[in-house]
Nucleic acid binder design. Structure first.
Lengths: 344, 344
DNA sequence: TCGATCGCGGACAACGTTGTCATAGTCCGC
DNA sequence: GCGGACTATGACAACGTTGTCCGCGATCGA
């Protein structure tokens, strides 16, 4: 095994083009193209010469040029989400990558950090790169900026949250049904003072989950108390403060529904060590929830399923599916593990 | 707010080009180019006409063509790792994205699933797309295939594991030192029968951590016992089986060092509920480790730091840094939380 | 033996953009 | 009124690739 030097003094070597290969092999550039593309009609001996030249020069065809010339697919898909670092979205990313790979496409990702301007910037940048399609977890509610792109034939699928003002394929999870189920579950154990701790209400999922919470209260015959709702806290400190307020009020909450995985984790950390812990059901499943004590009852839904469904929808569009836009709602399952089963 | 139709009957609209814009605005294509690129020397009135035409046609310049023509940067970076879905790597991805964004580059990712062929395929595919640089978590040990690319000026930075047979920038964590420290820690609490549960030994990090384990034993005056080493198990079942074997042997292990986050999690799940749990120190930190009971002592290192260091090294190369290849080793910190502090 | 066919290879244009250079018009000072 | 400097714009080629079409020699069928 020889160890090869990485950074050569002879740095500024121009990349070999088909022209260079053709010259070295003593054929025309078109013949090189034929060899590279496995086209028929090249004499084996000629092909060998060409392949040798390709090898010698380290030639690698320029996909930009190819795509430009062919005017067809660039073999890429753009994925705009909130944060690739969040385990939930990284699960989505992985699934999207998986599906796309099977369809011969690469994934370009970008994190919007809940900033609508950044979402737009990323999506349009991807369009400039002529991605074949876009998968977007919307940060904002205005998506008219995508209309020219969609009209130009770039299919767009929204996931996790719907678009504000365009009609397009959308894959969601059952936020309302899930949260309502959490309330029903807690009420069935006798809880009457149930709090909801959610993210900023202008985030679609947060709003929907609050709606589900409200509906769940109505259905379970539990009084919906505005003062038991805290929308917005999503970092450790604010979650801790909100939780403190909710559990030390005059009529304190005996149970809490947390609106997403991050809030759940912050809440668990805030509650660790406290004596009288409220019962808790968290939206989003997370690793090790089963190993905590008490194990955490969650509203589970599958990040992979979400990514897979969205990517498959997108690829169906790319394969020519021109049916009306679809809205897919994936189920949410309550996984009872213990934290939601304590009596008040 | 008007709701706009997504999939039009008038689908097959060709994307507008600068030519179309030029025709509509009644100027030459070059003038459009000037407006799009904010070049000086265009009459404001002309520029307005052009901008109006751009807006009307939904023109968005084709970056493929631009990059082809300019022959310069494509503004992309390729990231090949094992699995974007793994929280550790998604942290890396996020950091890489962050750094790249500040430098004006997009990230294309691909998961190799520990398959060297797939790693190679992905890396070369990225090269065909003319990424400005490559970040690779090697799956295999042969990287000679990258030499032509590196010679052609594509900088490559390896992260988390070194390359097999090329000299290039590399960012690693202190695997040996970390694991040795774990052994020292356990030994200081009186453990003499310490087991190591690692991934397949042909994975670099697994091998290094085993080496660190061995060194740690020597230094701590603990007998290194081959029979207390299990290399390879990395799914729930095999980890459970290995753990069972190690803790029920004639001279059972009283403490275990687990070789990465997945193995740690499987081990914790296998040990949950068992009465006499061995002390445990896991390589890689993970969310909620502090909330388990007992809280899990880990060898922590920062995924973000790893990604950031690698991405910054890469961008330094892209900015012309031609110094000899560097090897950066990031520290590993033992975070004592409880699971490693039980006496035998 | 002659025309038809086939296998192989090449010349050329085009994809959408930008760098270079040219040109027509305007304005200034002397 | 004229040279020169400057402004605004355009014509053209080129980036690296592939599709179209054409040519040349060999082989084949009648």
């Amino acid at each position: 095994m020889t160890t090869l030097s990485a950074i050569d003094p002879e740095r500024k070597v121009r990349r070999a083009t088909m022209n260079d290969v053709a010259r070295l092999a003593g054929v025309s550039i078109k013949t090189v193209s034929r060899v590279v593309n496995d086209e028929a009609g090249v004499h084996p001996a000629t092909a060998d010469r060409v392949l040798a030249a390709i090898d010698q020069l380290g030639f690698r065809r320029n996909l930009s040029a190819r795509n430009l010339r062919r005017g067809s697919s660039t073999g890429t898909v753009g994925l705009v989400l909130e944060d690739v670092g969040n385990p939930f979205y990284s699960g989505v990313t992985r699934a999207v990558e998986e599906v796309s790979r099977l369809r011969g496409r690469q994934v370009i990702t970008g994190s919007s950090d809940e900033d609508p301007a950044r979402e737009r910037e990323l999506a349009l940048e991807f369009c400039s790169r002529r991605v074949d399609g876009l998968l977007i977890v919307p940060a904002g509610v205005q998506h008219a900026y995508l209309v020219p792109e969609m009209r130009a034939g770039t299919p767009v699928v929204f996931l996790d949250r719907p678009a504000g003002d365009v009609v397009a394929d959308t894959v969601l999870v059952d936020n309302v049904g899930g949260t309502a189920e959490a309330v029903r579950h807690l009420a069935s154990f006798g809880h009457r003072r149930i709090a909801f701790l959610g993210d900023a209400p202008d985030i679609y999922t947060a709003g929907e989950r609050l709606r589900g919470f409200r509906e769940g209260c109505v259905r379970a015959g539990v009084r919906f108390d505005e003062s038991l709702v805290a929308m917005g806290p999503h970092d450790a400190g604010s979650v801790r403060a909100a939780l403190h307020r909710l559990t030390t009020a005059a009529e304190p909450a005996t149970a809490v529904v947390t609106g997403n995985n991050r809030i759940t984790v912050h809440a668990l950390r805030a509650l660790a060590g406290s004596v009288a812990r409220p019962a808790l059901v968290g939206f989003d499943d997370f690793e090790l929830a089963d190993l905590l004590s008490p194990p955490v009852t969650v509203l589970a839904h599958d990040a992979s399923a979400l990514g897979r469904a969205a990517a498959e929808l997108l690829h169906a569009r790319l394969d020519g599916d021109a049916s009306p836009p679809r809205r897919v709602v994936l189920p949410v399952r309550l996984v009872a593990r213990g934290s939601g089963e304590a009596r008040p």
